[in-house]
């Protein structure tokens, strides 16, 4: 079914993945220069999950993300300068700097929000799906979370309800092998997240999350089944966070050898290889990557120049 993804589609997906990578590398640089406060959770190495799933969704499918959400935001096509602005606390940001990385929504893009509580977005997505079903919409709610969140009660309770009520929701678990420092082997008794779906009479599958074409295909198939009314599904994508959990993580819980081994499966490398196999020139591939980097650099500059809010912006707007 790979022939469903045209060369230009794959090149576009590649460019998006590079822009997510460049976005986070740019953030890393800004942290180093003291331009960003707090912390941030990067998805370096996991870009194929965000791009593969979201490219298979409709623009009016609702997305719910988590603390590691930059990939999902950019894959949905949000304005990079406004996402960057949000992280820098600028008024130009999608939430005017009130939300930041972990609390960023863009309702005009059907992006219901990133979420700073591990597992917190799972019931919210389930509720969004309930509303979609109630209003007889053909849209689907798609929620991203990690292996760590699958140990929260909200995961189990929500899957149970969604299955009972046949809600149009796709649960996407990006299994990057670690919940912060805790490996899946020490936190998930079943050793695998997808198998947990069987307890809720739900279809659950584990797939290679490094291969963006494969992710796109399996997500598209799942979404088609859900749209046909076959009920919610759990899609587990095996991936790897090449960076630390957040900006201050010395990664003492894993070896550099493991990291080197996993880096061979870097989704950008794999996609570039696939593009070459499809006959694209190195020049075209490099040009796409360069264009993505330039997009990010221009966005960073625009975000940097935007103003921050003042006292009123901080203290107004608690209630509607």
């Amino acid at each position: 079914m790979n022939d469903l993804i045209s060369n230009s589609d794959l090149l576009r997906m590649y460019r998006q993945m590079v822009s997510i990578r460049a976005f986070e590398e740019s953030l890393s640089d800004m942290f180093g220069k003291g331009l960003l406060g707090g912390t941030s959770h990067f998805c370096i190495g996991q870009e194929s999950c965000a791009v593969g799933v979201i490219s298979a969704a409709r623009d009016d499918d609702w997305l719910i993300s988590n603390h590691r959400g930059h990939g999902h935001l950019l894959a949905r096509g949000l304005d990079i300068a406004r996402v960057m602005g949000e992280l820098m606390g600028k008024l130009s940001g999608y939430c005017g700097g009130r939300g930041g990385s972990q609390h960023l929504s863009a309702i005009d893009h059907c992006f219901l929000g990133t979420n700073g509580i591990t597992g917190g977005g799972i019931p919210i997505a389930t509720g969004a799906a309930l509303a979609l079903k109630y209003r007889k919409s053909s849209s689907i709610a798609i929620v991203f979370f990690g292996d760590g969140a699958s140990n929260q009660g909200t995961f189990h309770e929500s899957l149970n309800m969604a299955s009972l009520w046949k809600l149009p929701v796709l649960y996407v678990c990006e299994n990057n092998l670690y919940g912060m420092s805790n490996p899946v082997s020490k936190s998930c008794a079943s050793g695998n997240v997808a198998v947990r779906a069987s307890a809720y009479a739900m279809r659950g599958e584990t797939h290679d999350g490094f291969d963006v074409e494969h992710v796109h295909r399996v997500a598209g198939e799942a979404l088609a089944r859900i749209r046909a009314g076959e009920g919610p599904e759990l899609l587990e994508l095996m991936t790897y966070r090449q960076c630390g959990h957040s900006k201050n993580d010395a990664r003492v819980y894993r070896t550099r050898e493991e990291e080197a081994r996993m880096a061979e499966r870097d989704c950008l490398l794999l996609t570039a290889n696939s593009l070459r196999r499809r006959g694209l020139s190195q020049e075209d591939i490099d040009a796409a990557a360069e264009a993505a980097r330039q997009d990010v650099a221009a966005a960073a500059e625009a975000a940097m120049a935007a103003p921050t809010g003042g006292r009123r912006h901080a203290l107004d707007g608690l209630f509607a």
């Binding site: 719910i64 219901l112 917190g120 799972i122 019931p123 919210i124 997505a125 389930t126 509720g127 969004a128 799906a129 309930l130 509303a131 109630y134 709610a141 009660g153 909200t154 309770e157 929500s158 309800m161």
Partner: peptide, 10 residues
């Protein structure tokens, strides 16, 4: 916890 979250999402 989840059905209150479901209500929030709805």
């Amino acid at each position: 916890n989840s059905f209150v979250g479901v209500a929030v999402g709805a």
